[in-house]
């Protein structure tokens, strides 16, 4: 005996389709809602995020001195550049550079003596040596990477050797003349 809304009649078929569609939709929403916490748990945890930006006091850094701080597990070079460093950097013809960048693009306006860079060679990741190589101005600028011989100038730009890019400048800002926040 076939009733109007039995599974085999047209009305029954659409009701079955509705059931399947709704069940699938509900199931998909549920599955997504369950999957998200698992995936998000792999994102950086709150204590890692808390260390994702640091503040650095620049006042103890004398002119001509370069310090290294740690940020997100990487070394950061902070250099209080000398007049020589800045002049040498500005003299360079930007179009000759492998990774063309003018000196003032790598520092903050009004704080040109401060050079802040990620101290990781852009070739294969070694930490370059400060105040070494052919482009050091004699008072501690310039960097030389001992692993494969990349050489960076007084603005941290790649001049010689296999590295493809200038030393990366992280996101940072000046909170005051003597205090920066990195990240």
């Amino acid at each position: 005996m076939s009733q109007p809304s039995s599974p085999d009649s047209p009305a029954g078929a659409t009701r079955r389709d509705f059931m399947i569609l709704t069940a699938s939709a509900l199931g998909a929403v549920g599955a997504g809602a369950v999957a998200w916490p698992f995936i998000n748990s792999m994102n950086p945890a709150a204590d890692v995020l808390a260390l994702s930006s640091i503040e650095v006091d620049l006042s103890p850094i004398k002119e001509g001195q370069t310090i290294k701080v740690q940020w997100r597990g990487m070394p950061i070079f902070i250099r209080n550049r000398t007049k020589n460093d800045i002049e040498d950097a500005r003299k360079v013809n930007v179009s000759d550079l492998r990774d063309p960048q003018a000196d003032d693009q790598r520092v903050k306006k009004g704080h040109e003596q401060w050079l802040v860079m990620i101290g990781v060679c852009t070739h294969l990741g070694c930490i370059p040596i400060s105040g070494a190589g052919d482009y050091c101005a004699g008072d501690g600028g310039g960097w030389f990477c001992p692993c494969h011989g990349s050489q960076y100038d007084t603005a941290g730009r790649i001049r010689k050797g296999p590295a493809p890019r200038n030393l990366d400048v992280p996101e940072y800002s000046f909170l005051s003349d003597n205090r920066i926040k990195i990240g």
């Binding site: 916490p37 698992f38 748990s41 994102n43 945890a45 204590d47 890692v48």
Partner: peptide, 27 residues
């Protein structure tokens, strides 16, 4: 992924899961 099985760190790693890992308390 977040637990450390060493007597000096196990309890702390579980609290880290509860407090800092995203949805760690839920896991």
């Amino acid at each position: 992924m977040h637990y450390t099985a060493h007597a000096s760190m196990a309890f702390d790693s579980v609290e880290n899961i509860m407090r800092d890992v995203n949805y760690g308390w839920l896991l």
